[in-house]
Design a protein around this nucleic acid. Structure first.
Lengths: 249, 249
DNA sequence: CAGTGGTCTAGACCACGCT
DNA sequence: GCGTGGTCTAGACCACTGA
């Protein structure tokens, strides 16, 4: 039942232990509310030090898989937390996580002079150029959102020249360009749709929309991507799980 | 410049180190982008082991104060990240963080039979009773949101009998009742206001509102509070910072 | 009381970024 | 090669929970 860890693997031991426990939780060997083996017990079984087990458990807690209570033990948390924790996710990933089939239609991809707002958000020079990518996003075949991304042309010109898949910008940035996404600043508001949005989303003029702006940064605070997205309010609610205050543990 | 830590304090060393560094960052001794002293250097200066310093730095990274890069060092992050990181915050705290003067008018606080939706969200019995708290929230004196909270009557009856301050439910739960808030499940949507909302918020009938539902839980998954809030879309945007994927560090 | 997680040490070696 | 953070060990003692 308890599989071993490999010391020769290039994967750190604590990550192997995390995978092990995640798999057992996913497989239902530990259910929500169950108490995991103690740190000492796990360390003995896997022949690693307690501190290594501890690192694995702390990270699992951080990711929302388990909760730890001093003097009691480590308990399997509600599995839905780990899925919904507020993190940088693409539309595609969001839909998949909710069990909805994502779809994408590219309305246009081109190189443009960066408009002032875009320049400001992406910290670009006055003369800088941008890739502008417009997409209509579907959920189970129904239009759900209209989305426009701006990316600095200099770094990402391959998007225009190499015919790359455009159904997940984040996946593209990470896999093709090797960019590490560090954080995103999001703003969400309610407003009425523009005529263009009404046309694409197929909604009437008094149905409000959820409008999101997100600037994504890498770890050195360089802006990578500016996204504006407009969601149909009747088909889309913004769901997140947030954790409690770090100051009072 | 570098103050010492106290071994006799009941505050753990790593927390003292966190406070120390937070204070130095807040005071501007380290600015955004600066490189902090290395782990070894800090350990020597403070006469603690490197693992202790490490724990402090890891937690600071977790909270968004610094970022760490292998082979390079630990860098002070953008201070605004730590403020905006998606966490459980009350309306009051939100406003203060944005430099807006919060205000609160209690429209009513009473004990009611829990309606079905409330019962379902708070996992209550059919006969259970709830405290219903309705408030109008102001920002710089202007109505910004209409908010209704439901709390289980059994645990929190003191709210009705002890004339407690009601301008921050979270603060009340934490300080008076000693509840540890663990997580919140939020749903945000855009819709048109009800006549009652229009009246309280002073808006016209074609101005959309941001509508939020939040269920707050303690660490054992017991629901503590159900909040419904309606925000004026012209005065309120929902802002958060989210961090990148934990799976690819 | 025994058992749990929380803190802490004093080492060790490795992986990575830079020069 | 040097300095950084990343991983890991084998102990220690403390604080908390529950029987």
């Amino acid at each position: 039942m308890m599989i071993c860890v490999s010391r020769s693997s290039y994967v750190p031991l604590y990550r192997q232990i995390m995978e092990l426990l995640k798999n057992q939780i996913s497989a239902g060997e530990f259910k929500g509310g169950d108490c995991l083996p103690s740190e000492e017990e796990l360390a003995k079984r896997l022949s690693v030090s307690r501190m290594t087990v501890r690192q694995a458990l702390l990270r699992l807690e951080h990711e929302g898989w388990v909760r730890r209570e001093q003097g009691r033990g480590t308990f399997v948390g509600n599995p839905k937390i780990s899925r919904n924790l507020a993190r940088l996710t693409s539309f595609r990933e969001d839909m998949i996580a909710r069990g909805i089939e994502p779809g994408c239609k590219v309305l246009g991809v081109e190189c443009v002079q960066a408009p002032p707002t875009v320049r400001e958000r992406l910290k670009l020079e006055r003369t800088a150029q941008c890739i502008k990518l417009s997409r209509l996003r579907f959920g189970d075949g129904i239009p759900m959102a209209l989305q426009t991304n701006y990316l600095p042309f200099d770094r990402f010109r391959d998007i225009l020249t190499h015919n790359l898949p455009l159904d997940s910008v984040y996946a593209l940035l990470e896999t093709y360009f090797g960019v590490k996404l560090y954080r995103g600043d999001q703003t969400i508001e309610a407003r009425l749709p523009t005529p263009e949005e009404r046309r694409y989303l197929g909604i009437s003029k008094d149905m409000p929309v959820l409008s999101m702006e997100r600037v994504t940064y890498q770890s050195d605070d360089t802006p990578i991507d500016l996204a504006w997205a407009t969601y149909r309010s009747d088909r889309f609610k913004w769901q997140t799980t947030v954790l409690g205050r770090p100051s009072s543990p």
